[in-house]
Design a protein around this nucleic acid. Sequence first.
RNA 1: GGAGGAAUGGCCGAGUGGUUGAAGGCGGCGGUCUUGAAAACCGCAAGGCCCGCAAGGGUCUCGGGGGUUCGAAUCCCUCUUCCUCCGCCA
Length: 430
Amino acid sequence: MLDRGVLRHDLEMVRQRLAHRVEPGILDDFTAADARRRGVLTEVQALRGRRNRLSKRVAMAKRSGMDAADLVQESRKVHAQISELEDSARTLNDETQRILSQIPNLPHPNVPQGPDESANALVSHWGEPADVAFTPKPHWELGVRLGIVDFERAAKLAGSRFAVYTGPGAKLERALMNFMLDVHTSEHGYTEILPPFIANSRTLYGTGQLPKFAHDLFKLEESDYWLVPTAEVPLTNLYADETLSPNDLPISLTAFTPCFRREAGSYGRDVRGVIRQHQFQKVELVKFASPETSYGELERLTSDAEEILRRLGLPYRKVLLSSGDMGFSAAMTYDLEVWLPGLGEFKEISSCSNFEDFQARRARIRMRHPGGRRGKTEYVHTLNGSGLAIGRTWLAILENYQEADGSVTLPEALRPYAGAERIARSGVLE
RNA sequence: GGAGGAAUGGCCGAGUGGUUGAAGGCGGCGGUCUUGAAAACCGCAAGGCCCGCAAGGGUCUCGGGGGUUCGAAUCCCUCUUCCUCCGCCA
């Protein structure tokens, strides 16, 4: 959520920076509603002040044994006036809140302005595709032939966009989870968290999924429970309504969770294989940082995610998203895109963002100001990124490490976790 | 599921209708003292919103919401969460 004051005092700046992110009308809607809200609020507050002064006079009169009937009478009248105005004050307040909660974050000035991914900026490349003498197959062909993933039985159990992993397929997923968590906790300094995979509305509001993106989420019936679409939601909200000490920052958390997404509106996109599923597993990285250090922390978090790709020997590129391609809550986002030789394209495998104070304001996560600045508090900056999406890492390994005979050699770093060197043509680990 | 109890500022904790936005302690920050530190002492410190160029003023907030009252942290209703005991269960 943006600061109301910024919208009020710097509307033109906001308008420019949100050029590719909102329909201009919403900013005017807010401005108009907010002006009405402030008008009524000023009036209500003046009346309340009057009532408070009258009450004090009643108290004084009673204490000195005088008759206060007139004062009480007048105060009753004021009370009635307040009640009348309060309703419209509340309505107007809800209205501005509703509009404000649908306005996305301001992109950082270094973010390229543009309507969509065509304006994204390539930052760097790493690795080269394996030089092979055959045409690489897509992972769904490899996986089904090896018998390590089963889409038909998954469809029977749940429907389309689900997968059942079997034998070495399941173990590879588990190996990736442990490998990523180990690297992030013992080498990158993250604290491992195992959060609930269900969250309430307030929590989803805090990170910006609600109210605007309810249609992307799975809601549980007859409850205020939602399946989490990413561990970002429980991890970031861990400190909702809290005031952190600057000495504790930055806080770095990591978690393995399944992620549940409706993927409504993506019909026809990525329909084959495990690229886009209603449930996928992910190791997430989340940081809480002071405003002064948050962009340095974004670089570190991104490189922590990159480190996983490097250790696994997966070629990738790093892209700075344009203002029109970024998510709703982000101020700056790097996407890491892994090379998939079977599909012949780069595919997002991690998205690392600094949300600045946008989520912190919604979730009310503050920090006390360091260095004797009169105990003032300010909002922390929140960051997160995938470290990495496990399903996509799984398929990237299949596609990048496939051999001519359809077997898959496992990357060195993963072998201790898989207890094997390869998935043989017969579909067994050995 | 049943029966009790509880929820106060960064933390602990006082406070049952009228200068209590809130005693006291701890923790934090600044200072005095000290070569430095500790101790001691002094001082400063809640958040949101509204009016204002500012200085400053106002208003709301004692788990959430509603109510009683001229006036509510204090009384009533309701919801949530936590604790204890019983039941059930992995």
